[in-house]
Design a protein around this nucleic acid. Structure first.
Lengths: 221, 221
DNA sequence: ACCTGAACACCGTTCAAGT
DNA sequence: ACCTGAACACCGTTCAAGT
């Protein structure tokens, strides 16, 4: 009845899909995407390599389920806001923050269009757009624009943060890259364009993009 | 001087980075991302498995170079348009079409933020935004919004088309999915939101998204 | 029914040996 | 200098054998 430990603490309970997905998240968070191997996972669960295949079909399903468990938490309780615009900002920021904390989710969401985690995001966006009064084909266009923007920004941010855990390194790399552009093409127009790579706060820039989108659907409507 | 064939047609020339990247594109186009193995690639080039490592560091570099060769062609000659808005639409559509034709590029662009192909897109977008008269931090925000939207839409479209090569299957799957949402949650608000998954032309919807962001950039400025 | 772990059919990458 | 292909150190998944 209670969830307390049993006689043998090394193997607390029978395996279950939930326990496997939970362990998958733990391995991904500590070892990254490359560190998620069936061997590492089953070692973490102290079970045999083949055991997980009684509960999930394959590694893809495992990754999709792990991402869904993370996104599920982020999207939950985002409907509360009275103001649909604020709700959209909250939903988007919730996804951004959760991907910042679990970079492997960013890559996973781009891997399969109709996976549960992505459908959750479609659903949340659809609800808020409806509350905003966007209807008909305009809502499909707006929803697709927002979902694709959020997923694209998430993937790029995750890809960047996965590698350059050191922010200083990243900054100096971006600066040298911009300088390289300018050297390669001394056209002042290129020089100005290189400023896109300047230092910025990814999170704030992400939110600015959401606001550009919100202004866009208001203008197009 | 000319590029005509030599005596032995089975091994036309010495290996080179260009020839290897070209072969990589060919393998990816015919066998997909999962089909790109060093064994398949070197067989296609009729050489030994280790040969390519004299010209590229590893498989990641190969994928990045292959994507860059595709994106390079798409972005080239997109600066011609007088009207910067039309140039942005052309740039975005060029990327969409090239990813529609080579779905593996869509996934690759989400894998590494500062890879050459992605930087090319940043550069192209930066140039047009500048011509549009967007300056200062507003240009960074606008550029990031546009680039992330394009990359997100590209990845989702590619992920969708990779699997469901059969459009009929995809359509009926989306329909049953929407029906499932409604069954699961009879709230009419959910039912309406499910309409986001309705049939649509991905390419046209992609362009509608670009226009939303363009309108937003104009409104926010 | 669930679990174990050896076995299978693969990978990417390295490196001694060749030319 | 460039190439070859065997060898190495891994993978994900299956499946007979156990409980």
């Amino acid at each position: 009845m209670s969830s307390s430990a049993q006689r043998n603490p090394r193997r607390s309970d029978a395996l279950s899909r939930e326990r496997i997905v939970e362990a998958t998240v733990e391995v991904l968070d500590t070892a990254g995407e490359a560190g998620l191997t069936v061997r590492a996972l089953t070692a973490h669960l102290s079970t045999g390599r083949g055991a997980i295949y009684h509960h999930v079909a394959d590694k893809d399903e495992l990754l999709a389920a792990a991402a869904d468990s993370i996104i599920g938490r982020a999207v939950a309780g985002t409907e509360g806001d009275e103001d649909p615009k604020r709700a959209i900002r909250g939903l988007a920021l919730g996804i951004f923050d959760v991907i910042d904390a679990h970079p492997w989710v960013g890559g996973q969401l781009s891997r399969e269009a109709l996976q549960p985690a992505v459908l959750r995001i479609w659903k949340g966006v659809g609800l808020q757009l409806q509350r905003l009064g966007v209807t008909g084909p305009a809502r499909s266009d707006a929803g697709s624009a927002l979902v694709n923007y959020v997923l694209g920004a998430a993937a790029q941010h995750a890809a960047g943060s996965r590698r350059a855990s050191n922010a200083k390194d990243r900054k100096s790399y971006l600066e040298s890259l911009a300088a390289q552009w300018v050297r390669h093409d001394p056209d002042p127009i290129v020089q100005e364009a290189a400023s896109l790579l300047n230092e910025h706060d990814d999170r704030q820039q992400f939110l600015a993009g959401v606001d550009i989108f919100l202004a866009g659907i208001a203008a197009v409507r």
